[in-house]
């Protein structure tokens, strides 16, 4: 009679246990303080204007997406390839690859949640002006937290996939910067892209993370101070000497110095800079989340498929 052996479900928990032991004994917990340090550095630079002005929000959310992707990549880029021969041995002894990847998904999910919480706490300490209105849950903080978690998790799964296809940690660490640069350039929000390059952005995690964060931060309702920032450096008294009519020069001076006019002008600039991708609506945010979850699932499935061929590894 065919004897039954440990199934996929039970194996998943065997490996979850193994991974948590590694968390303690192999010092895998190091990624948590690292997340705090990175969040601290970024907050120091971007927290001031985050969710206050359009350009500050775009810069800030772009930086937050980068933090998430960086954390996600570092969590798992070496996790599979460093123990590839061990997986091969265990596969020979009855390990189900799907259980192995599922265990990683559970463990990495835990790491991503911790990193998101740490980043949110650091941002809060850095006095970031979080929005007060929420879209999906009852708290805007929670909405932003979920987006950051999903972005980190999707990046984590992408790195897990890379770790599943490469043979060693050196290759993994060589590939990682390219992936990172690709995610940054093709985020679709920070750099102006056109044509085929614009279409590529749909396949990046950074685009959906950035879009969701901007939408949650009411990007389109924020004032745009980019023009005024440049104008503030201008000496309006000298404009007439440079051929600018006197009435125009006086109007510009008022615009720069009068807080009420300045505020109204920035608001108007903001309205004119409306970006549909960052529309603050439940549908848009859910669509971004859906794409992040889809990426997560696709990369996890690809990891399973690629590792199923581990027996073909040669000495």
């Amino acid at each position: 009679m065919n004897k039954m052996h440990t199934g996929r479900f039970a194996q998943t928990f065997i490996y979850v246990g193994k991974l948590f032991r590694m968390f303690i004994y192999r010092n895998d917990w190091k990624v948590l303080p690292m997340a705090a340090i990175i969040a601290g550095l970024v907050s120091y630079v971007v927290a001031g204007n985050l969710f206050r002005t359009m350009e500050g929000t775009l810069r800030g959310t772009f930086a937050l997406s980068c933090i998430c992707i960086w954390n996600g990549f570092f969590n798992s880029i070496q996790s599979v390839c460093r123990e590839r021969p061990i997986i091969k041995r265990e596969h020979r002894s009855g390990l189900h690859i799907s259980s192995y990847i599922m265990a990683h998904m559970i463990y990495q999910g835990f790491l991503c949640i911790c990193q998101t919480v740490i980043t949110m706490i650091v941002l809060n300490y850095a006095k970031a002006a979080f929005p007060t209105n929420s879209f999906i849950t009852s708290s805007a903080l929670f909405d932003i937290g979920i987006t950051m978690f999903l972005t980190t998790y999707a990046a984590d799964m992408l790195a897990l996939f890379v770790s599943s296809i490469v043979r060693n940690t050196t290759t993994a660490m060589t590939v990682m910067p390219f992936l990172m640069i690709f995610q940054l350039i093709f985020s679709g929000g920070f750099f102006q892209l056109q044509g085929a390059a614009l279409a590529v952005t749909d396949f990046t995690i950074s685009k959906w993370g950035l879009s969701a964060l901007c939408a949650e931060g009411n990007y389109n309702d924020l004032p745009n101070g980019a023009i005024l920032t440049a104008m503030s450096a201008m000496d309006t008294n000298k404009l007439t000497d440079e051929g600018v009519p006197a009435d125009v020069s006086i109007a510009l001076d008022k615009l720069v110095k009068d807080p009420e006019i300045r505020e109204a002008f920035m608001k108007k600039c903001g309205e004119l800079s409306y970006n549909g991708k960052f529309e603050s609506s439940e549908e848009n945010i859910l669509f971004c989340w859906f794409n992040l979850i889809l990426s997560t699932v696709v990369f996890a499935c690809l990891s399973v498929i690629s590792l199923e061929f581990i027996d073909r590894d040669r000495r």
């Binding site: 440990t6 590694m22 265990e90």
Partner: peptide, 17 residues
């Protein structure tokens, strides 16, 4: 796995085999 205990290494092997 270097960073696992001897007992858990054997116990997990037993669970698989």
């Amino acid at each position: 796995r270097d960073h696992d205990t001897v007992y858990r290494t054997i116990a997990d092997a037993a669970s698989l085999r």
